[in-house]
Computed example of a mutant assay.
Amino acid sequence: MPIGTQHQIVGVLRHGREGLVVEVTEGGTWRLDAGWRARRLIGHRVRIVGIRDGFDLLAVKSIERL
């Protein structure tokens, strides 16, 4: 998956060591570059659309609770 590609991820939003992360349903985690408003969704299952901006970093375009 090259940097700059768009991804749609489904998982549970958590607070990690370096900020927000999503624990993906299929396994693994992504670190998120998301606004502070996303914190209200911590602990909930979410769908995230974002652009890959590093090895495991997504620049979030949208996030919604499922």
Rank of each mutant, 00 (worst) to 15 (best):
G54C: 08
L41R: 07
V10K: 14
I42A: 05
H44L: 09
Q8A: 04
E23K: 08
W30G: 01
A34F: 09
G16P: 05
L66H: 05
H7D: 00
R31S: 05
E18I: 01
L57E: 04
R14G: 06
S62L: 06
R65K: 11
A34E: 12
S62H: 13
H44T: 14
V46W: 11
E26G: 14
L13E: 00
R65T: 10
I3Y: 10
L20N: 04
V60P: 07
T29L: 07
F55I: 02
L58N: 09
G16F: 04
L20R: 00
R52S: 13
A34V: 15
D56N: 15
G50V: 09
W30M: 05
A59I: 01
G16M: 07
R47I: 03
G28L: 03
F55L: 11
G4H: 09
H44V: 00
I63K: 09
R47P: 02
H44E: 13
I51P: 00
G43W: 13
E18H: 15
G4E: 03
V21C: 04
Q6V: 08
G43H: 15
R45D: 10
P2F: 03
H15E: 08
G27K: 14
T5P: 01
A38R: 11
A38K: 08
R45A: 02
I3F: 09
L41E: 03
I42C: 04
I42M: 12
H15V: 07
H44N: 12
G28A: 11
G4C: 05
R31A: 08
T5N: 15
F55K: 06
G28Q: 03
D33P: 03
R17G: 10
R39A: 12
L41D: 11
V60L: 05
R47W: 04
I48K: 06
E64K: 07
G27S: 11
V60A: 08
W30L: 04
V12R: 12
F55C: 02
G27N: 11
E64F: 01
G16Q: 13
L58H: 07
G35D: 13
L66F: 13
R40K: 13
I51V: 15
V60N: 12
P2M: 01
G35Q: 09
I3S: 14
V22T: 04
I51G: 01
A59C: 00
L57P: 04
